[in-house]
């Protein structure tokens, strides 16, 4: 059932992404997720072009990227967002060039890079849930001080975000990552986790139901619902600050 799998997929994301999103907001880095996903996609393209294992290349390149990002110290003068944005552009361009060598892979590639919520199977959902759970556990051990702690953080992000983008598409993943955490943001720091999760879950349910009854594309509908559910909370938090 398309409705059921879409709902479950959004709920899984709603229960996993806000944890990561809050940390991402703390560190003021958003582009890293997009950059990691693009590295993975380019790795897949290399695999396709060289007729070797796509997932293996994707995993390998993502690991290298994670280790490289973790090597940037937290308080470095180098603007991290800029570095990640630039790396995203380079990886995207490399992927595009590799793609032009493969006559038939273009459509396949868009499906890989920006999956569709409607295409998620129960197996995909199980994998998403498992990796998401693993990512949350890794978050416990992550931090800013030591290299290992930073590796833990970026690995947690990669584990949760990259397969999610592949399964349900980039817009929905970014919406789930950032909107609930932003809604729960209080003053200078993150608000309580339960508030972010509440926004995520209500957005998921309202969005999917809205799509079903109004005959709308579900991913977009959920993102808009997240915004609608998050906005009142955000405004309430603004008032609370004083």
């Amino acid at each position: 059932m398309f409705l059921l799998t879409s709902l479950i997929a959004c709920l899984i994301l709603a229960l996993v992404m806000p944890f990561l999103g809050r940390r991402v907001l703390e560190r003021r880095i958003v582009f890293v997720d997009l950059a990691l996903a693009q590295f993975a996609a380019t790795g897949y393209a290399i695999g396709l072009a060289s007729d070797t294992s796509g997932p293996l290349w994707a995993a390998g390149i993502t690991v290298v990227a994670v280790l490289a990002f973790a090597a940037l110290p937290y308080a470095s003068k180098l603007p991290k967002e800029a570095v990640m944005g630039a790396m995203y552009a380079v990886a995207a361009a490399a992927g595009m060039v590799i793609l032009t060598q493969l006559p038939h892979a273009e459509g396949h590639m868009t499906d890989l890079m920006f999956g569709s919520l409607l295409g998620a199977s129960y197996f995909d959902l199980a994998v998403l849930a498992a990796l998401g759970f693993l990512a949350i556990i890794m978050l416990r051990f992550s931090g800013n001080d030591t290299y290992i702690q930073r590796v833990m953080f970026y690995t947690a992000l990669a584990l949760a975000v990259v397969p999610a983008i592949h399964a349900v598409g980039i817009v929905l993943v970014f919406g789930m990552l950032l909107l609930p955490a932003l809604a729960a943001w209080q003053g200078e720091k993150n608000g309580p986790v339960w508030l972010a999760l509440l926004v995520g879950v209500s957005g998921a349910v309202v969005g999917v139901m809205m799509a079903e009854f109004l005959d709308l594309p579900p991913s977009s509908s959920v993102v808009l619902a997240l915004f609608a559910c998050g906005l009142p909370i955000f405004i309430w938090n603004l008032g609370k600050r004083e």
């Binding site: 398309f2 569709s116 079903e212 991913s219």
Partner: peptide
Amino acid sequence: EPKPGIEPSTSHLDALV
């Protein structure tokens, strides 16, 4: 595709099945 160039909705797909 319910209309050319538009992604289907869950209700369209379930009805289609």
